[in-house]
Amino acid sequence: MTTGERRIPYWDAVAATKTFTHPLHLPWLDGINRQAAILDYGCGYGRVMNELEQHGFGNLTGVDTSPAMIERAQLLHPALHFATLDTPPALPSPDAAFDAVLLFAVLTCIPADEAQRRLITELNRLLKPGGFLYVSDLLLQDDDRNRRRYDRYSAQPDNSGRYGVFETDDGAVCRHHSRDWLTTLLGGFEAVGTRTITVPTMNGHEATGIQILARKPVAT
């Protein structure tokens, strides 16, 4: 079974138990109108969507590949709009449909370079010129536990990403990223801001993360 085939069953199985923790840095959203169309791609159980609503944002859409995550989101936040992605990364939305896209702890769940590129290409299509892409994810860690995990997975035949891919104890294949790779991946966007954060992982370990705010260029 490939990594992609394992991904949705894994998230369906853990949908009721996982807690996600990447913080929403609200000052980055100060310049966005409260009625702007915002997409939370990989919304999980709707934690960030709920926080956005609490801060006055009213045009929110959350999508995720896991039907069980979407079911949990709808139960927790029945007033918000959620949908399951049938053919990820594609969304059945027109070009330039959104003013901002959030991508919180999603790249870590997509080990392969090309799959990450396809996702960023789709999000670029969905964003209006001048719209914002807000990425929050995990950097390569330098502790012994993670280095052993990276080295162990690098020998696997289905290692479809660069150094930093690993398998968690409960069976998720994930990826931590170099700053250089994230800069390359987002090369079509204009950098607006970067933050280094410390965040608990979904399995309770402390990790170094990064948040990036980028803008889709306006054609001239």
Rank of each mutant, 00 (worst) to 15 (best):
G46I: 09
A83F: 02
H25G: 05
G56S: 11
T87G: 03
L76N: 08
P89Q: 05
T17E: 14
G42R: 05
D30L: 14
Y45T: 12
T17H: 12
L60P: 00
R34M: 07
H55Y: 13
Y41H: 11
T19E: 11
F57G: 07
M49D: 07
A37K: 11
K18H: 13
H81K: 14
A16I: 00
F20N: 05
Q35T: 12
Q35M: 12
R47P: 03
F82H: 03
N59K: 09
L60S: 04
Y45D: 15
P67Y: 05
P78Y: 08
L26V: 08
I70M: 08
T84N: 02
E71W: 01
V14K: 10
A79G: 15
R34A: 09
P23N: 10
H81Y: 05
G58W: 04
P27D: 11
I70W: 00
A79T: 02
E53S: 15
P23W: 07
T84K: 02
H55D: 09
N33C: 13
H81V: 12
P23Y: 10
H25P: 04
W28I: 09
A79F: 03
A79N: 11
H55F: 14
D86S: 13
T17W: 01
A73W: 01
A37W: 02
P27R: 08
L26K: 00
D40C: 04
D40W: 02
T21R: 11
